[in-house]
Design a protein around this nucleic acid. Structure first.
Lengths: 177, 177
DNA sequence: GTCTATATGACGATAGAC
DNA sequence: GTCTATCGTCATATAGAC
């Protein structure tokens, strides 16, 4: 892996763990095993590096969601597979967590991939759910919200349990229709 | 309002807007119209002040939830009133947002009120929903998660719309039972 | 109680040698 | 491409006068 790649990967990890404000260039360099000069040679600064990291994380999220959502099976089966797939629940959503960072949301370049990714997810889930719901838009928003909110509850409790309960609840409601 | 009170209120606002890491003592003092010496006279430091602020915000959240949840009406009516009550949607949940702050979650004193408040909310909603569900725990978790996740989607979109859609969706699912 | 002065280190970046 | 030196500012206090 090149130095530039190691810098991007380190930034992705740190943004996930500590957010944008909580992530310093120094910490990125240390984790990547790169020096100051090296980082500023490859990237213009912290926002530039964050953009590269966020873009890569957003692509990754979409690709992995698509794995479950475009698999064979009924709508319920695919949504269930997506919601119950293995996740780093206590780490939360690497995209959703950035919405809490005012410096990220204030920068249109950093904000765009986050807005687009969550809008895409909602729209993609609506497509799948259209198989069983004539107007699935609101329910698709609910499903994405349960996921994002489940992460919040899990972090608050320092336990996966509330996340699992929230997913179980929405699947119960969905399946009972 | 006393200086100590102004410091606590300013800290509450800043924690809501910028999180713990993003909030400096200097910013708190400036917003409260207090000097350095004044702040350190009343509070031991940033964590001490944050604890006072978080405690007050947690009490406030519980009191305001209780307003809707203990009102007269059916379970569905009370949950609907709670979910649809007026909110500062784009600002998000002042308690839930702190779960994204690793420095808060790493400090047991700061973490406790957050954990307790969300656990209480879940349990309180389960009590209300028991009127229509024999085993309401998972669905109560879902309802709280939709709220927390709805805030995330609203911030990502810079619009109240996804929040409203997510709430509408879960109420549709709940009411259709 | 509130003020000003001072301290130590981190933050985010630039400059220039190698 | 990477390194070290340097920079101006902010973060988070402590000390002591008033």
């Amino acid at each position: 892996m090149s130095t530039a790649d190691r810098l991007i990967e380190s930034t992705r990890e740190l943004l996930w763990e500590r957010g944008y404000t909580g992530t310093s260039p120094k910490a990125i360099q240390h984790r990547a095993g790169a020096g100051q000069g090296s980082m500023y040679h490859h990237f213009a600064g912290k926002p530039d590096l964050a953009l590269a990291a966020i873009t890569r994380t957003a692509e990754d999220l979409r690709a992995r969601a698509e794995e479950q959502l475009s698999a064979p099976g009924t709508a319920i089966e695919r949504v269930t597979a997506y919601l119950r797939r293995e996740r780093d629940v206590l780490k939360g959503c690497p995209i959703g967590r950035l919405t809490q960072d005012p410096d990220v949301m204030a920068d249109p370049r950093l904000r765009a991939p986050i807005e687009e990714t969550l809008a895409w997810l909602r729209q993609r889930l609506a497509e799948v759910l259209r198989e069983i719901e004539p107007a699935p838009e609101a329910i698709a928003a609910t499903v994405v919200a349960v996921l994002q909110g489940g992460y919040v509850l899990a972090r608050a409790a320092d336990s996966v349990e509330p996340f699992t309960a929230a997913i179980d609840g929405v699947l119960t409601l969905l399946t009972a229709r």
